[in-house]
Amino acid sequence: MEPVVVRTRTELAAALAVLPGTRGLVMTMGALHDGHLALVREARARADHVVVSVYVNPLQFGPGEDLDAYPRDLDSDLALLAGEGVDVVFAPDDAEVYPSQPLVRVDPGPVATVLEGRTRPTHFAGVLQVVAKVLNLVRPDLAVFGQKDAQQLALVRTMVRDLDLGVEIVAVPIRRDDDGLAMSSRNTYLSATNRTRALSLVRALRAGQDAAAAGAGVDGVLAAATEVLGSAEGVDVDYVALVDPGTFLPLAEGDSGPGLLAVAARVGPTRLIDNMTVDLQGPRP
């Protein structure tokens, strides 16, 4: 079944009006891959109907970032979605999403100032602005997000809770290619050489996981991951961090329980992020 493609708020409202039952939403910027389809399948398993938005949101790109170069191929996206039981695809243009300069803005708070927010200081405000708009337009019962963008996921959950938006936020684990690289639309930027170099991110995360499993504390986990990533040829490290999965505050030596090991690096011209959960055993008696 091919989805109904709508481009305006009026068309979206009309398409939604004839769909009884529960509604699941997957928000994307297009250039879809199997990681996106995993989100769609999760939405399909949980809701009677699925809506997918496809929109490259300019507010979440900073100066000098890849807004113009970001891959766009709606026809290919629709071909992929046709086999996934999607009911509606909302594919607006900029004028439809932002008919005027938005004067009321979403403030993402302190979590948006660390890690990705430190490197991209306007990014999360732009993300939450468009997420809030699409949630209000679609009015889903649930919205599905990927755990690769873990900081984004935490901020969306916080916004939904703090603003009483009344939607369940569902997380889906990271999908990886056979070589371990986390699936991302930006992987298409990678040359063959740089794709091989990019595997240092997942190797660094696995080294940190192994260190934690062997009893290392926060410092040891960070050291193991940093050693792998820092020694990789052609990889410019942005950060290696071990944080609380909910607050994104850094964990300290002696902390125990789950932690999120997050890395970001530029491989050639392409900036990539990845993360894994580690289990910190805490200080031994």
Rank of each mutant, 00 (worst) to 15 (best):
V18A: 14
P110M: 02
A47Q: 01
G35E: 12
F90N: 04
A264E: 06
E116K: 05
L155K: 06
D236Q: 13
D238H: 11
T193G: 12
V156Y: 06
F61E: 00
A132R: 15
R175L: 14
D48E: 10
A15G: 10
A112Q: 03
V131C: 09
P283F: 09
V86A: 11
R206H: 14
V172S: 08
D162R: 13
Q209I: 07
Y189K: 12
A150F: 05
L59Q: 10
L165M: 15
P99F: 04
G282I: 01
L59W: 03
D94T: 14
R284S: 13
S231A: 15
S200M: 03
A69G: 03
L261Q: 05
A17S: 15
V134F: 14
P283S: 13
V278W: 05
V218P: 11
Y189M: 09
V40A: 13
S191M: 14
Y98F: 11
A214N: 02
V106E: 00
V88F: 02
V6E: 12
Q147K: 11
P250Q: 05
F124N: 01
E116R: 01
V18K: 12
P99N: 09
L80I: 04
G109F: 07
P58L: 07
V54N: 11
G254V: 04
D162T: 08
N57P: 06
V106Q: 01
P140W: 02
P20R: 13
R9T: 11
L128P: 05
N136G: 15
A45K: 14
V235M: 10
A216P: 01
V6C: 12
D68H: 09
D107A: 09
L165R: 02
N136L: 09
Q147V: 05
Y98N: 05
V202E: 10
A216N: 00
A252K: 14
V56W: 04
P250A: 07
L137F: 13
G83Q: 07
R266M: 04
P245A: 08
V6M: 04
A204W: 04
L74P: 11
Q60P: 06
G64D: 01
P245E: 03
E227P: 01
N194V: 00
L260V: 07
Q129G: 00
L103E: 15
A265E: 04
M159T: 11
D219G: 15
V4Y: 03
V26I: 10
V221H: 10
V278M: 12
R266Y: 08
A171G: 12
A262Q: 13
A216C: 08
S191D: 12
L78W: 12
L25C: 14
P140K: 06
R271N: 01
A150N: 04
Y98P: 03
G246H: 13
E2R: 15
H36N: 10
